[in-house]
Design a protein around this nucleic acid. Structure first.
Length: 269
DNA sequence: AGCCAGGGACCAT
DNA sequence: ATGGTCCATGGC
């Protein structure tokens, strides 16, 4: 087990920030996460966080995954103090991290997310993993990895509708096909240095539009300028930023500001 | 019963 | 480029 003391890091806020749909609070201050084919159990008490894994796994996998080396207080310090809304949002979600999740997993997960609510998205993703993911064991814990493209290709559109994917089933089938046949290369998308280039490529996928592409750029590729505009963010922009969000000021950190707002809207009051 | 949920494809101007 | 309309499903 690894024990570390971290600033601006809250498992509760990360869990509720809606980036990862396979992270659960299983008991008080205890969280379980399945990312790709990895399982991780964590506990947190104040700033002390325990990761139930080896040194090697922590350093190679979870440090980049949770963006642990980044200093989020410097992001928060850049917020315009006169922007009382954003200041309040960032204070509310100051422990949020922008995760670096698997690209393929984010593509499928955010295809499912569209016009859907978070609890139902969780259910859909879980059923998809149970049906097509590889069964794994970590200690006493049995879990299903997220299915890779080859495994998911076994699913027909009707199969996926049977799992409750609704009209998104066609998007999943078509997107899986275009990645397997090499029409779109995940490796290439990983290597694009510029956010706009990665997004442009993602937009070629069936069922991937502006918002979903931005989520993938932010939560998998760590393009911190991606600013997904969903129905909640739209309402905030209309209400608090009638003259537009101050993009210039937050260049290079728009994505984390978006997450503070999103989390705030879902958890305030 | 109708509205909403981390929207996008497709079609009409 | 912009603006409807339709697309499944479950919770309220």
């Amino acid at each position: 087990m690894i024990t570390v003391e971290l600033d601006n890091f809250s498992l509760k806020e990360i869990c509720q920030s809606g980036q990862c749909f396979r992270m659960y609070e299983t008991e008080e201050n205890t969280y379980e996460l399945i990312a790709g084919d990895q399982y991780l159990k964590m506990t947190q008490d104040g700033g002390i966080v325990n990761f139930h894994c080896s040194d090697m796994e922590f350093i190679c996998y979870w440090v980049p995954y949770f963006d642990i080396d980044a200093d989020y207080s410097s992001y928060i310090a850049k917020i315009n103090p006169r922007d009382t809304y954003l200041s309040a949002a960032a204070e509310c979600g100051s422990g949020i991290r922008i995760l670096q999740q698997d690209l393929w997993e984010m593509i499928i997960t955010f295809l499912i997310s569209q016009q859907n609510n978070i609890s139902r998205i969780r259910g859909c993703v879980e059923r998809l993993c149970e049906a097509y993911g590889e069964k794994k064991i970590s200690g006493e814990k049995e879990y299903y990895a997220f299915p890779n493209p080859e495994r998911l290709a076994a699913a027909s559109e009707d199969d996926l509708r049977g799992l409750g994917m609704g009209y998104r089933a066609r998007y999943i089938v078509e997107t899986t096909r275009s990645i397997l046949n090499g029409e779109i290369s995940l490796d290439r998308i990983y290597q694009y240095r510029y956010y706009s280039r990665a997004k442009q490529e993602l937009l070629k996928l069936s069922g991937v539009g502006e918002k979903v592409a931005d989520c993938i750029c932010l939560f998998a590729l760590h393009h911190m300028d991606a600013f997904p505009i969903d129905t909640h963010i739209r309402q905030v922009l209309d209400e608090h930023y009638k003259r537009g969000f101050p993009n210039r000021r937050y260049r290079g950190m728009r994505g984390i500001m978006q997450q503070y707002i999103f989390y705030y809207e879902l958890n305030k009051k």
